[in-house]
């Protein structure tokens, strides 16, 4: 009996390791390609670890285009989008959690409908709208979605978190004469730390990865974000794979590290997604 259980456990882990490896295999290939010495002819057979290992592609990527500037631009966008998103999304979620059940259900439905809207169908009209507002070629066009909490999912995440806080806690504070904003700041937000961290990380990822908004709305090359910069690098040197892969790794690494921060909340049984 113990033997059978043992075999089952081992085969489970073998299968899981296989699935995980297939899932991340492309990333392993990319890292290996990015470390290949420039100038060498491409390898004729698959090469897992390049020989010699060379970091110069990373240096070269920053020299060829102003990748450092684009990195700063991306961080500026994110630096503005995160606080805006946190405030609008948590306000909306906080309010939602305290409305009557009927209103709550209608707002959940609204969020689900909004999650279903194809963004590509909004490009054109948003472009027209933003040009009227004079937002084309400004950062406002990129961070505009932060006005509405960036993603309806973030509002739902805050809503689920705040709904779990006992109503008596709010009610006694209201009787003491506290204002809604005070209750949000002093009672609700401190109890929502995992959600705040999760939404911050997800917002970071959203704006860091956003390619279409800067592609459509940003015209001056010095205002490009990393994602458009990466595409520019591709146009400059289409077949320099080690260089392109190095720049891709620059773009992926921060996201993977940040996800490491929140994976605990992501996968725990009491995790944020368990209210879905």
């Amino acid at each position: 009996m113990r033997m059978i259980r043992r075999i089952r456990t081992i085969s489970y882990h073998l299968a899981a390791i296989l699935v995980s490896s297939v899932s991340v295999i492309a990333m392993i290939w990319v890292i290996s390609a990015s470390l290949r010495q420039p100038g060498l002819p491409p390898p004729p057979v698959i090469e897992w670890i390049p020989n010699p290992i060379s970091w110069s592609n990373y240096q070269r990527a920053f020299e060829l285009i102003p990748l450092g500037q684009y990195l700063l631009n991306s961080l500026l966008v994110i630096g503005m989008a995160i606080p805006l998103t946190l405030v609008t999304a948590s306000w909306a979620g906080f309010a939602m959690a305290q409305f009557t059940q009927g209103t709550q259900n209608r707002l959940i439905l609204l969020a689900i409908i909004l999650l279903m809207i194809p963004v590509t169908s909004l490009w054109l009209a948003r472009f027209v709208l933003f040009s009227r507002l004079g937002w084309i070629d400004t950062i406002w066009a990129i961070i505009a979605p932060a006005m509405m909490g960036s993603s309806p999912l973030f509002i739902l995440l805050f809503y689920w978190t705040f709904r779990r806080i006992p109503k008596e806690l709010y009610e006694s504070a209201v009787l003491d004469g506290a204002m809604a904003i005070q209750i949000w700041r002093v009672i609700a937000m401190p109890l929502a730390k995992p959600t705040i961290v999760t939404v911050m990380v997800l917002t970071f990822i959203l704006y860091w990865s956003d390619f279409i908004s800067p592609l459509l709305y940003i015209k001056s090359t010095e205002k490009y974000t990393l994602s458009v910069g990466l595409q520019m690098l591709q146009q400059l040197d289409r077949s320099n794979w080690p260089l392109l892969m190095a720049a891709s790794v620059v773009m992926i690494t921060p996201i993977v590290l940040l996800f490491g921060l929140i994976q605990r909340y992501f996968w725990s049984e009491k995790g944020i997604f368990n209210n879905l």
Binding site: H13, S20, S209, S227, V256
Partner: peptide
Amino acid sequence: RRGVGLYRTAVYLPTLIPDVAYALIWLWV
């Protein structure tokens, strides 16, 4: 089970990759 968080993260990882980088990676693959 032991290690399940790691496996789940590995499965989720490709979804995290920014679209442009993802396209470039596969262009090379």
